[in-house]
């Protein structure tokens, strides 16, 4: 870092790009998980809890095993279990999936904080990153393009999921179940089983998103690690219109918007930082308001989902 020259105002777009890459990964994984769940006709509002459980499990297992990848795998497993429980609870008649989500969020936060106490202080091995900034001499650009393997995995997953929904039997099954329980039954599909599995896999994705928080960025476990990423992802899925590739862009947009606050302060625009920090929420709400309509059903919305009915 010998040539640490200031970038001035150029720092803002660069920070937004870097922030988008750094901050978006948890949003990406959670929203992909939520996308899968919602496509099957369920909503899982408990992914905030799953995210935190994933963060804690990932960190703890990375600490004990010495391998961050074992941490990620454990986080996925923990998320899977949480998703499975959510899916199972929601398969009872008259049980409201949004409320179950909130209760699973409380349980997830409670268990993560309960078992996470001994891991606040220790340092666990982190996930590696790949440098895509080798072509540039500017250290800031190099830093912004330090891309974590999970970000790449998430991007690939988004495209894979989009392809899956369109072209595979599994994808079709999930979509049919999400659009009409009756239609699925006539096709000989068991809707409840598909939904439970989709919720479980969605939970696993959220768990991975959590492990990114504790194992890469910001890269340590604490009780304040998640600040609503899991809840926000639910909103992102709606404005991504249940399309995994749009989820990817939405997560990037949200991550980038989150970088505006610190970046503006760093170039001397220092007043009103609370409002700049709220930029991602204002942006999301604005897009939702602009693109929603009472006239037509939301394009891409699964017909069986309680939230769009």
């Amino acid at each position: 870092m010998t040539d640490a020259s200031a970038l001035g105002m150029w720092g803002v777009p660069l920070a937004i790009l870097g922030g988008a890459i750094r901050v978006s990964t948890p949003f990406l994984f959670v929203s992909l998980g939520e996308c899968l769940t919602e496509r099957s006709g369920r909503i899982n509002l408990g992914l905030e809890g799953t995210l935190v459980i994933g963060a804690m499990t990932g960190y703890a297992m990375s600490y004990h095993s010495g391998s961050p990848f074992i941490g990620v795998a454990s986080a996925a497993l923990a998320g899977l279990v949480f998703g499975l429980i959510h899916g199972w609870l929601c398969s009872f008649r008259h049980v409201n999936d949004i409320a179950v989500g909130i209760s699973m969020m409380i349980v997830g936060l409670g268990l993560a904080f309960y078992f996470g106490k001994p891991y606040i202080q220790p340092t666990a091995p982190r996930l590696p990153s790949i440098s895509f900034g080798w072509w540039s001499d500017i250290p800031q650009v190099q830093a912004a393009l330090q891309v974590n393997v999970l970000f790449i995995a998430g991007a690939v997953l988004a495209f894979l999921m989009a392809w899956m929904f369109r072209n595979t039997r599994i994808g079709l099954t999930v979509r049919v179940v999400g659009d009409s329980t009756d239609a699925a039954r006539t096709l000989g599909i068991r809707p409840t089983r598909v939904r439970v599995l989709a919720t479980a896999v969605g939970g696993a994705f959220a768990g991975v998103g959590g492990s990114y928080l504790s194992l890469y960025y910001p890269g340590s476990w604490s009780e304040g690690i998640a600040s609503g990423q899991g809840l926000m992802a639910v909103a992102l899925v709606i404005f991504a219109r249940w399309n995994p590739i749009n989820c990817f862009w939405a997560a990037l947009l949200f991550g980038g918007a989150g970088a505006i606050g610190p970046a503006l302060q760093s170039v001397g625009i220092t007043q009103g930082y609370y409002l700049f920090y709220a930029a991602p929420y204002v942006l999301t709400l604005g897009i939702l308001v602009a693109t929603s309509s009472t006239e037509r059903a939301m394009t891409g919305a699964p017909g069986e989902m309680s939230i769009t009915k």
């Binding site: 870097g18 750094r22 960025y217 890269g219 610190p262």
Partner: peptide
């Protein structure tokens, strides 16, 4: 205590050459 914002703030400082 806001870990993600603290990390972002640190990165923003580094980006500006601190």
């Amino acid at each position: 205590s806001l870990p993600v914002k603290e990390a972002e703030a640190t990165n923003a400082l580094a980006d500006q050459g601190a």
